[in-house]
């Protein structure tokens, strides 16, 4: 019998592009100076499934019109952002500025091992749920049952630190499942 390694055939490669995009947003708003306004302003965010990462509230600082300025950082699905702005306006909250915190740093990571779809899903979710990083592209090569699979994963994050955190999450998950992670230099 001939050595089967001479007959190595390239397996098909599938690419998954994800559609639901969570974005990180910083927002400057102004509240009326009456009790209960903060809760009143933050409610629509959680109602829309958003996450509040930080609130900066300077009590002693006021706008010329006597309102209280507030800085918010939140994560929210891209498609919900406009609805949020509408709801805030309805509640009498002035939205002064909205800035998207872009996923501006990316890296490619390779995985090798017995990769199962469910493991991948779990890994992607754990990164996407951070709000500061996500898996933006994934190519998977599964030559067959009982054979080693490989995947290339593109991670994006809002900054270098966050990218490193995302890689740590990926590495921790992979280690648990005995999957080898090849990171870039």
């Amino acid at each position: 019998m001939e050595d089967r390694s001479y007959f190595y055939l390239p397996p098909p490669i599938t690419t998954i592009n994800k559609k639901v995009i969570t974005m990180k947003v910083s927002m400057s708003i102004e509240l009326k100076d009456i009790p209960g306004q903060l809760v009143h302003a933050l409610q629509p965010i959680s109602n829309l499934g958003g996450n509040i990462r930080s609130v900066q509230h300077q009590r002693d600082k006021k706008t010329p019109s006597g309102r209280i300025p507030l800085q918010l950082v939140l994560e929210i699905e891209e498609r919900s952002l406009n609805i949020l702005v509408e709801r805030l306006k309805e509640r009498g909250v002035n939205v002064v500025r909205i800035g998207e915190e872009r996923l501006k740093d990316s890296m490619v990571v390779l995985l090798i091992g017995h990769i199962v779809h469910s493991d991948l899903r779990e890994t992607i979710d754990s990164i996407d749920s951070t709000g500061f990083a996500e898996v933006v592209e994934l190519s998977l090569s599964m030559p067959g049952v009982d054979m080693t699979s490989s995947a290339s994963v593109t991670l994006s994050a809002i900054g270098k630190e966050e990218l490193k955190d995302a890689l740590d999450i990926l590495e921790a998950t992979a280690e648990k499942k005995g999957i080898m992670v090849i990171s870039s230099i």
Binding site: P11, V108, L110, I112, S139, S141, T154
Partner: peptide, 27 residues
């Protein structure tokens, strides 16, 4: 230390598609 015996042609191809090569790097 991790060696190279687990590296597959598939992995090298995926790396290539993404603009990379795989090398054993000491750091």
């Amino acid at each position: 230390v991790v060696g190279i015996s687990e590296i597959t042609p598939d992995a090298l191809k995926l790396a290539n598609d993404a603009g990379y090569v795989i090398k054993l790097i000491g750091d």
